[in-house]
Structures are given as structure tokens and as C-alpha cells.
Design a protein around this nucleic acid. Structure first.
Length: 936
RNA sequence: GACCAUAUAGCUCAGAUGGUUAGAGCGCUACAUUGACAUUGUAGAGGUCCGUGGUUCGAAUCCACGUAUGGUCACCA
């Protein structure tokens, strides 16, 4: 590793350089001017030497080694941290189960966000001293993975899974899953994740399978899992039923046909389902059809001849839709199914499981429904039964979100979870639910969020949660795909055996169905720690987990299922907080997709800009639950930041004599020392507050602002002038690296290991704590004092810039002040150096003002930039007038406010005091400016 | 149709519990460049805080209505 170690050897030269600078009395950086001849020799040596050092941080040279080093240390595993005395064994626990990526391919930028946010939390808590565990895993994602492999199989070999058979096909899927897994793990490591790989799990491995079988068995015994004929979303293409959430609806324009059906006109977009229709349904209160009574029958001509139809009155019919009359197809429509259930009507299958018409369609039997549709319309038209066609009709069609198959509702025997049925919760660790209380799964779901035992962030997603949970329907568990956990049920004749193991004896066969992938996923808060019983040490230590961090798009898919399974099986909440992050979009706000070719691959950009830059760009500027936009430009700007931190460290390293890790707040020697120490302390205070409330973006921005705008732009420049900052710079660097580490682990660790060679690695150092002792509430005199110096310097620079004075040229300044005299004298060297002042006069005597000057006012202090005859009076007048025009409305506004009796009577005293001070300052400034103008 | 969110500088976004002359980064303009750092520095320009009402001594912030954009759910015979 080319490292900053070597830079230590430069220190000798830089020390000499500093000495010489100081000996010149007017300390200034070489930017501002020439050094004496004496300096040249040293300068050259330093320069030449540094040429050989890495001036820029090059992430790719460090990242891999650093990760390896972390991994080999074992510190990702909390047991090792305890064993080595880094973490106290009685410390508080902090645990996260990584939402396991699907083994469908590679990690995308959305995973990178998740990994970055969770790693920040985990590293922060580990450094805070908590017993911290972050468990990795991958998910078999049954439907998604099988669909992907089937697609590949068809594209490459023109074969279906049935051509291979269950066993061979599953082997293919497993090989594919293994490849994906390996790639995913590598990618996660590249992102710097401090996951405990020794505890890694797979959602379909032995232990998880046992958990699934046990859970199914328990819930069956409780009567919560049942087998029944219900209408399901059948995908003829995939040959499986899928759940409601896996179905996507898209709007489509389709011809809408009106047909004569006996005395009624009925309408449909799907004439092919109408063969078996023999019920006409209308609203009971519909006046138009009052003469028809519920249960009346009539005979009429229909597609394939005469049918007898029965009249049904049901208030689910909307009289305003179409003609207010409809026929029903209970086997292929959910609404119709429930009407038929209510009135105990016959149901008949019309379409088979491949999407072809059954014999009931007679001459159309065997035809695909889409081919048959126009032919059926043609036939009805020929019979004079077609009344009209609405070509502008828009309805939504249902497709399978995986694979895009057109959904055909079918009635099938499937396994279900009854979410409304009361059961007895034997052992409850849930507040407000007692042991042995009767509850339903739906009630549990409502209860734990209502009582805030589980907090959802941002809280507006609670609305969405309840919207879903309050309208919860039974959960269809079984799928007819092959990849996944098998339904642990066995049959013999009509007997059903549900148990963990296959029963003894002849004639039993296992259900060939598999389970919804979310059934196993619903147990991920505890199944990675062992079985359903919850007896392992890990379960005792780390469950419920602290946080579930995931994207808001799977709130209903996964979060709800986890709460359901965990409260039911364990009588516990799965996690205390749900933190939902937003989606990452491209710079135009579009979703990233292959077809738009706007995908940002986390590995590509990590290689290009460094992992730290990628992580920061995903954290900063994004808030919980809100989508964020990402561009390479943005990542580039954080690459710049990492480099800035690197160079700040380079500089500091050259200026500290003895890098020590055991740091206490050093004594301040100067005003600026006191100021920077107080600033740092404030930063630490806010940093912890922000992380506590999950405002990671704000925490990072705070650090960035301190690092760049406070430390680099001001204090390091001051250090060059005041010198002798070894102890204080060591203290700042030490703290800064620790604070930054959770966000940008690689660059901070690289710097740390170069600076503090013999110390334990940064990832297990103790996080700096807010120093209450040195915090002065409200008016911090020292900070205020330095603020004045800073304002004076900025104002002088501003005057220089306005007067177009070359940056290198020294200027004469007269400062007229009052009680600040002593402080200004003390810090005159800073004003000289940082504002490039040659002759500086600090006085209480107003007449010391130069003949011709440009003037600025800072508080009660007046600055005069000596223009030594070069003043353009008109320009100066304009400038002062502009400044007066800016300040006087402000003064008036404040005067008005303070003379308003209602304000003075009602506003809190502190607010009034602040306003008074503002007015006082502004009035002083205005007066001074007016005086200066008058004198010109 | 129900519910939710968002609207602040050219762009991306910060702005707990009402009290700022409304902030940052990028971009833009001018100037600088042997420096720890051009992956840089200094100084600037740039805003009707979506609109209209209201509450209040005081509103970017709270309330109502409206407009635009996005999302979740439901319906679609």
C-alpha cells in the first residue's frame, strides 16, 4: 500500500519550513508571495519528495486489502468483539437482519442504498460499544428465480421445465442460484458491508426449511392454515396461481359489447366467458327492473342455443354501470364468485388451465380464448343478438408481475392462511396482549403498530400499512411452481396429513405444490437465528431486531408478513423500528431500467469513483421514504470530498509530531484553538442526535461542512500561521476519522492505519462522545470572538475583490474599534496572514482613518481599506449607498416590529431580546455607513 | 373513487416544536495557481418559498380550498 506512512518522513522538512515561516514574523503562505532565498532549498526538497507520494486518494489501491483486513479480524462477528474485549458482553444489543437479496442475478443500485444505510447504522453502533450484529442472507425468491431460469432455458434451448422434469430443472435453478449468490456476496463485500458472514443463511437451506415446516405445522394445528376451493389468480403461462400482490393491472382499451339476453341487454368485454352464464343479476332497488322478481326464470336464445336463466337481486350491482344488468361467470371472475357464494349458485368452469375453451363452448371448444373472442361476437351478431359495440371502453387487465402472463381467474383447491379467525396466543411478549388471549392475525397486525411497539418511519407509511391491514384478505400460500419450499402436507385418498415429517405407511404422497416465498420470508426476523422455538443464544441476544431497513415498495409484501408470522409463532414483535428508504432514480427522475439504458451499476461506479463516494452519494440528499436522484456527477463530487479528506489528513500528518490514539481534549492556546474545539464538540453533539433520529443525510452534511468549510478552509490555514498545533490537530483528526467512519469506511480506515500504525483498526475504535463539560449554553464567548475575526477577514477580502486588488498584493487596513481592541491585537497575525494585510492598525481613534479608503462595517467595528490615493469617490459612494440601501429597510422592519405593542406583549422575552440585539447591531452599522458616506 | 406524499435558486435538495435580511452542493461569473489538495482557493450573481384565502403580534413552516406531479388501494359486468 503506498501510504501516508512515508509522509511522516517529510515532517522533518515541513517542520523546518514552518520554523522558517515563523521566523519571518509575517507568516504567510507561499500562495501570497515569494519566500526568502533561504527557503528555496527546503521548498524544493519538500516538493520533490512529495511528488513521489500519492497526492490524490486512489480508492482501488486500498479497498480490497482493507476489506480483507476487516474480515480476517473477525470483528464483524460480535462474539469476537466480546472475546477480544472490544465490546462488553453485557452491552446493549443492536441487530439488523439484512433484507436478503433475491438470487436472480446481481445487486443493483437499490441494494447499494440498503447496504450503505444499514452499514452506517451497524458501524455506528459497533463503535458506540453496542453488541452489534448484522446478518447476511440471500432469498430463493421462488417465482422470480424460476421464471428467470425458465426464460433462459427457452431462449437458449427452446425447452420448457416440463421437458427437463422436476429434478433436472431444479438442479438447473440451484446452479443458477449458486452463481447469483456468489456474485451478490462479492458485490456486498465491495460495498464495504460489515456483515457477519459466519452467520450467513439461505432462505431455502436446511434450517430455514425446518422452520418453514414447523411453522406450517403449528399454524395448521391452530386452525389458521386451511385448504379450500377459492377463486385464485391463475397464470396459464406459468401454470401457477399467484397472490393478489403479485398481480399488476394495466389499463387497456378494448371493444365493449352489448348483447341481447332475453328481455335484458347485458354488456361485456369478455364474451368468451359467457357460455355457461345462466344468472342475470341486478340491484334490488333498480326501478327499471322492479317487475322481475328474485328467483324468476326465463328462457332465451344464447350463443349455442336456448338457455334457461334465473334472476338474482344483489346490491353489489351498480345500476349506473352499463344497463344495470349483468350475467355472471363465477368460475372466472372474483366479484361473480362472491355473488354466487352469497346466493349459493352453481359455478361452472368454462376455460381450462391452459387458457383454452372447454367442451361447454361446443364448436369453440379447444380454442384459445383470444382467438375465439371475435368468432363468438361474429356468431352472436349473425343471430341478431349484438346490440352495439363501444370501441372506446377502457378497462384494466391483470397480468403476472413475474413473467407477464395474462391472469385468468380460476376456482382451485389451495392452501390459505385465515387472517380473521381467532386463536389463542399462548405466550405473549406483546404489550397489551395477555397470555392465552384470543386474537386474530389481523388484530395482531393492527395492535402492534397502533400501540407503537413497532414504529414505522416515516410515519405516513402507517396510513398505507393500515389501509392494507384493515382490508386484509386470507393469504393464499400455495403455488404450482417447482422452486421453493414444498408444502409439508401428505395425502392418502382424502386424508390430509400435515406434519414436520412424512408419515409412516403406504399410499401417502406429498403435495406437489410449493409455498409462497413470503411464507419463509415472513420468518426472517428470527429464522436466521435458529428455529421457531427461539431457544438459541442469538435469539435471546438479538431478537426482536432493532431495525428493519428496507424499501417502501415491499411494505405490504414483506413487512406485513413478517409481523404476522412473528407475532403468531413467537408472540413477539419482529423488530422495533421499520425504516423505509426511497427508490433511486436517474437524474431525470425516471426509474432505472434496462430498456431506458439508464442503469447505474454500483460496482461500475465504485470502480470509477471509489466505494466511499458511491455510499455518500446515496446517503446525502435523500430522506426516509422519499425517492432520490442519482447521477455520475453527484458521485464525482463525493469522490472529490474523499480526496479532500485525504489531503487534509496529509497536511495534518505533516504537522503532528506524535500521532496518538489516546486523546483528551487539549488545552486551547489561542482563540482559534478554543473555537475549533468548541465547533467540533457541537458537531459531535448534533451528529449523535441526527443518527438517533435516522437523519443520516443531515449527519453526513454536518460532517462535510465541518471538514471542508470549518476545518480546511479556516483552521488549517490558521494552523499554518500560528503553528505548534501538534496535539490539537491530532485530536481533531482522530475524532474526525471516527465520526466519518460509518459513512466512508475505506478512506477513513486507510488514513487511520497510516497515521496510527500500531493501533487497533478504526472500525472498532470508540465513537467520540459529546463533551458536556466544555459546552457553554447559548452565548459562547470564544466562538463569538472568533466569529468577529472571521467576519473581519471576510470583509477585507470582499473589499479587495470589489476594488480589484490583486490577490498577492498587500494592503493597508485601519480597524477602528472599542472594547475589542485587545482581542484584535492578539489575533492581528491572523488578519494579516489570511487577508493579506501589510500594514494593520487597530485603534480606538477614529481620526486614524486613511485619507482615502474603502469602508466596511462589522458589528460595532469599522474597517478602512487604505486606497492610498487610488480611490474613485463616485464608485465608493455608490458602493456605500448600496450597502445602506440594503441595511436600512432591515432596520425599519425591526423598528416596526419592536414598536408593535402586540409583539412586545405577546412574544417570549428571549425572542424580543434577540430582536433588540439585531436592531442595535444594524442601527450601529447603518450609522457608521452613513458617516462614511458623508465624509467622502 | 378513497387515502398518502411532493411543490423552496438554472439543477439536486436542507430548512423538529411558527420568531433566519430564507440556506447548502452542483452549475454560472470574475480573479488566482510551485502551496496538504486544480479532485483546489477567494469573492460574487441568482429566490413572489405553487396559487388564493384564513389563524396569529409574527407563516416557507399551522388550517381550508384550488392547481400540478408522483404513489398506495379499490372498482371496471
Amino acid at each position: 500500500m503506498p501510504s501516508m506512512k512515508e509522509m511522516r518522513t517529510v515532517k522533518y522538512y515541513s517542520g523546518l519550513l514552518q520554523f522558517c515561516q515563523r521566523s519571518q514574523k509575517l507568516a504567510f503562505s507561499s500562495y501570497f508571495g515569494s519566500m526568502g532565498c533561504i527557503m528555496t532549498m527546503f521548498q524544493i526538497s519538500v516538493y520533490v519528495f512529495m511528488k513521489e507520494l500519492p497526492k490524490a486518494y486512489e480508492p482501488f489501491k486500498y479497498e480490497e486489502n482493507i476489506y480483507k483486513h476487516w474480515e480476517e479480524s473477525g470483528f464483524f462477528n460480535p462474539d469476537v468483539c466480546i472475546e477480544k474485549g472490544i465490546t462488553d458482553k453485557d452491552a446493549e444489543s443492536f441487530s439488523i437482519v439484512l433484507p436478503p437479496p433475491n438470487v436472480t442475478g446481481t445487486l443493483h443500485i437499490g441494494h447499494a442504498v440498503m447496504l450503505a444505510i444499514e452499514d452506517v447504522m451497524v458501524r455506528y453502533h459497533r463503535m458506540k460499544g453496542d453488541k452489534t450484529l448484522w446478518v447476511p442472507g440471500t432469498d430463493h425468491a421462488a417465482i422470480a428465480t424460476q421464471e428467470k431460469v425458465e426464460r433462459m432455458l427457452w431462449n437458449d434451448e427452446k425447452k420448457t421445465r416440463h421437458d427437463l422434469g422436476r429434478e433436472v430443472f431444479l438442479k438447473r435453478v440451484e446452479d443458477f442460484a449458486q452463481d447469483s449468490h456468489d456474485r451478490i456476496v462479492n458485490q456486498a463485500k465491495r460495498m464495504g458491508t460489515s456483515l457477519d458472514w459466519s452467520r450467513e443463511y439461505y432462505s431455502l437451506d436446511e434450517d430455514r426449511n425446518l422452520a418453514v415446516r414447523t411453522a406450517f405445522n403449528i399454524m395448521y394445528d391452530m386452525g389458521l392454515i386451511y385448504r379450500g376451493d377459492r377463486i385464485v389468480n391463475w397464470d396459464p403461462k406459468m401454470q401457477s396461481n399467484v397472490s393478489d400482490i403479485e398481480v399488476v393491472r394495466t389499463e387497456e382499451k378494448a371493444p365493449f359489447y352489448y348483447f341481447q339476453y332475453g328481455p335484458f341487454v347485458i354488456s361485456t368485454a369478455r364474451p368468451e366467458t359467457k357460455f355457461g352464464d345462466k344468472y342475470v343479476v341486478m340491484h334490488p332497488d333498480d326501478e327499471r327492473y322492479a317487475k322481475y322478481k328474485h328467483g324468476d326464470t326465463f328462457e332465451c336464445e344464447w350463443i349455442n342455443g336456448k338457455v334457461t336463466a334465473t334472476i338474482i337481486k344483489d346490491d353489489s350491482v351498480d345500476p349506473a354501470f352499463g344497463t344495470g344488468v349483468m350475467t355472471i361467470t363465477p368460475w372466472h371472475d372474483a366479484t361473480d364468485f362472491f355473488i354466487a357464494e352469497r346466493h349459493n349458485l352453481e359455478k361452472e368452469q368454462v376455460i381450462d388451465f391452459d387458457g383454452n375453451l372447454l367442451p361447454v363452448a361446443e364448436e369453440f371448444a379447444g380454442m384459445n380464448i383470444l382467438d375465439a373472442r371475435p368468432k363468438i361476437v361474429e356468431k352472436l351478431k349473425a343471430k341478431g343478438l349484438l346490440v352495439k359495440v363501444d370501441e372506446e371502453y377502457v378497462h384494466s387487465i391483470a397480468t403476472n408481475s413475474r413473467g407477464g402472463g395474462l391472469i385468468e381467474p380460476q376456482i382451485m383447491k389451495q392452501w390459505w392462511v385465515d387472517v380473521k379467525k381467532k386463536f389463542t396466543l399462548e405466550h405473549s411478549h406483546i404489550e397489551g396482549i395477555t397470555d392465552g388471549q384470543d386474537v386474530s392475525l389481523q388484530e395482531l397486525l393492527q395492535h402492534v403498530v397502533n400501540t407503537k411497539q413497532i414504529q414505522i418511519l416515516p410515519d405516513r407509511f402507517e396510513k398505507q400499512y393500515f389501509n392494507w391491514v384493515d382490508n386484509l384478505l386470507d393469504w393464499c400460500l400455495s403455488r404450482q411452481i417447482w422452486y421453493g419450499h414444498r408444502v409439508p402436507a401428505w395425502y392418502r385418498g382424502d386424508d390430509v396429513y400435515v406434519g414436520i415429517d412424512a408419515p409412516e405407511g403406504e399410499g401417502w404422497t406429498q403435495d406437489s405444490d410449493t409455498l409462497d416465498t413470503w411464507f419463509s420470508a415472513g420468518m426472517f426476523s428470527f429464522s436466521p437465528f435458529g428455529g421457531v422455538e427461539g431457544k438459541s443464544e442469538d435469539q435471546k441476544n438479538y431478537h426482536p431486531t432493532s431495525v428493519l431497513e428496507t424499501g417502501y415498495d415491499i411494505l405490504t409484501f414483506w413487512v406485513v408478513r413478517m409481523i404476522l408470522m412473528t407475532t403468531c409463532l413467537r408472540g413477539e414483535i419482529p423488530f422495533k423500528t421499520v425504516y423505509l428508504h426511497g427508490l433511486v432514480r436517474d437524474e431525470q427522475g425516471r426509474k432505472m431500467s434496462k430498456s431506458l439504458d439508464n442503469i447505474i451499476d454500483p460496482l461500475d461506479v465504485s470502480e470509477k469513483f471509489g466505494t466511499d463516494a458511491v455510499r455518500l452519494s446515496l446517503m446525502v440528499g435523500s430522506s426516509p421514504g422519499n425517492d432520490s436522484k442519482l447521477s455520475e456527477e453527484k458521485i464525482g463530487s463525493y469522490r472529490n470530498f474523499a480526496n479532500k479528506l485525504w489531503n487534509i489528513s496529509r497536511f495534518i500528518l505533516m504537522n503532528i509530531e506524535n500521532p496518538v490514539t489516546d486523546v483528551k481534549r487539549p488545552e486551547a492556546q489561542t482563540l482559534s484553538d478554543a473555537w475549533i474545539l468548541d465547533e467540533l464538540n457541537l458537531v459531535i453533539m448534533h451528529y449523535h442526535l441526527y443518527i438517533k433520529k435516522y437523519s443520516f443525510s443531515q449527519a453526513a452534511e454536518l460532517l462535510q461542512n465541518f471538514t471542508w468549510n470549518t476545518l480546511a478552509d479556516w483552521y488549517l490555514e490558521i494552523a499554518k500561521i500560528e503553528g505548534n498545533k501538534s496535539e490539537i490537530l491530532n485530536f481533531i483528526l482522530n475524532n474526525l476519522l471516527k465520526l466519518w467512519h460509518p459513512f466512508i469506511p475505506f478512506v477513513t480506515e486507510a488514513i487511520w492505519q497510516s497515521v496510527y500504525e500500531s493501533a487497533e483498526m478504526l472500525m472498532v475504535q470508540k465513537m467520540p462522545l459529546f463533551d458536556k463539560e466544555h459546552f457553554v449554553e447559548g452565548a459562547n464567548v470564544q466562538m463569538h470572538g472568533f466569529g468577529l475575526i472571521r467576519d473581519i477577514i471576510t470583509n477585507i477580502r470582499s473589499l479587495r475583490s470589489e476594488k480589484n486588488i490583486e490577490p498577492g498584493k498587500e494592503v493597508g487596513i485601519v480597524i477602528v474599534c472599542g472594547e475589542e481592541q485587545a482581542m484584535l491585537d492578539e489575533n492581528a497575525v491572523l488578519i494579516r496572514g489570511l487577508a493579506r494585510v501589510g500594514s494593520l492598525t487597530v485603534t480606538g481613534d477614529e481620526s486614524a482613518k486613511p485619507e482615502q479608503a474603502s469602508t466596511a462595517v462589522v458589528g460595532s467595528i469599522t474597517l478602512h481599506l487604505d486606497l492610498a490615493g487610488a480611490i474613485d469617490v463616485d464608485v465608493e459612494k455608490t458602493r456605500l449607498q448600496k450597502e445602506i440601501d440594503h441595511v436600512s429597510p432591515y432596520v425599519m422592519q425591526l423598528e416596526k416590529k419592536l414598536s408593535n405593542k402586540e409583539f412586545v406583549d405577546n412574544a417570549p422575552e428571549a425572542v424580543i431580546a434577540v430582536e433588540k440585539k439585531k436592531l442595535n447591531d444594524a442601527t450601529q452599522k447603518l450609522t457608521a455607513l452613513q458617516e462614511q458616506l458623508a465624509m467622502l
